[in-house]
Simulated assay, not measured.
Amino acid sequence: MLWPERFHRSQILNLWFLVAIIVLCCGVEATLQIADWLDLGPRLRATAYENGGFWAGLLRNWQPNYAAQPYTMFLTYGFLHGGLIHLAVNMVTLWSLGREVIARVGNWGCALLYFGAMIGGGAGFAALATGPAPMVGASGALFGLAGGLLAWAYVDRYTLQETLWPVLRAAAMLVTLNLVLWWAMDGQLAWQTHLGGFLIGWVLALLIDPRARTSLDLL
């Protein structure tokens, strides 16, 4: 697939946004894990999910725990995870995708894409989810980063008159991944969040940087 220019060694220090998100997410989960080990976890984790998770019912007729909850949950859900494995997979993915986004549009561009896709993921879940369970995790934002990278790859390849097959192949792999995970998790995967994040990420990426890049590495 076609990606932005490779990182130079000096650019590694310019990843403050990724570091901040990873530290925050890990700090939240570490607090909940410690509470679990001290037998405070069931209540503390439940409280965190109750107040920070994304509850689609709050956009209908449910009573919120605090007045701003129907609005803040569009961001707070992305900093909560369902355990260490969920956190680890998402943070490794963030580090991988986020570096490529920063290489193209910098930390502020990455932040705009990340949080915009997080909101889009929440909107997708609100519009398409039918169950009462809450949704947590950074994957909506991560699919937004993936959508943004694919949008840029599409524009770059189209401008260079290169085949679009690598973009289509990557999109098909994302669809396949969701289907496999949905089956493996017995339908508990928040694919609606992934879809919403991906679509908003694609659109936002073309608004943040609509210009094609002609100096690219083929990986």
Rank of each mutant, 00 (worst) to 15 (best):
F79C: 03
Q63P: 03
L87T: 14
I200C: 11
N65V: 04
D156Y: 00
V180T: 04
A56M: 01
I200F: 12
W183L: 14
A48W: 09
C26N: 15
A123F: 13
Q11A: 13
L128P: 07
F79G: 03
W37T: 11
L206S: 01
L44H: 00
Q33I: 14
I208G: 00
P210Y: 02
A68D: 13
F54D: 00
Q161F: 04
C110D: 06
G124F: 09
N61M: 12
F79L: 07
W183S: 12
P4Q: 00
G147I: 05
G197V: 03
L195D: 08
A138F: 05
A190G: 12
L189F: 14
Q188M: 10
W182G: 12
P4M: 00
Y77F: 15
V92M: 14
I85K: 07
T47A: 13
L218S: 11
I22H: 15
A123Y: 10
N51G: 10
F125L: 01
R60N: 12
L44V: 09
L164T: 10
M135R: 01
A171R: 11
E50I: 06
F74E: 03
I102M: 10
A117T: 04
A88R: 12
L80A: 03
L40F: 11
I21G: 10
A205T: 04
D156C: 01
H194E: 06
T159P: 04
S96D: 11
G53I: 04
Q63T: 15
V167K: 02
L128N: 04
V19Q: 14
P210G: 04
R6V: 01
R99I: 15
W165P: 00
L199P: 10
V89P: 01
G121H: 06
F125S: 01
P210F: 02
W37V: 12
T159E: 11
D36E: 12
W37M: 10
L24I: 12
L168C: 13
W165L: 08
N107Y: 04
R99F: 10
C25P: 02
A212F: 01
L142T: 03
R104E: 09
V101H: 06
V155L: 07
L15K: 13
V105Q: 13
E50P: 04
G187Y: 02
T47V: 07
D39K: 05
G121E: 11
G121N: 09
T214Y: 09
P210D: 05
G83W: 04
R157P: 01
M185R: 09
L113D: 05
G78V: 13
L216Y: 00
N178M: 15
G124S: 13
E162F: 06
F198N: 14
D39G: 08
V23D: 14
W108D: 06
E100V: 08
L164F: 08
L207D: 06
W152H: 06
W191H: 08
G106T: 09
A172E: 07
G57S: 11
G131V: 01
L174C: 08
A172M: 11
L94Q: 05
R9F: 15
T93Q: 10
I22E: 15
G98A: 12
A153G: 13
W191P: 01
A67I: 10
L160Y: 02
G52F: 04
A103G: 15
S139K: 02
A146E: 04
L177R: 13
P132I: 06
S139V: 10
E29M: 00
N178P: 03
W37K: 11
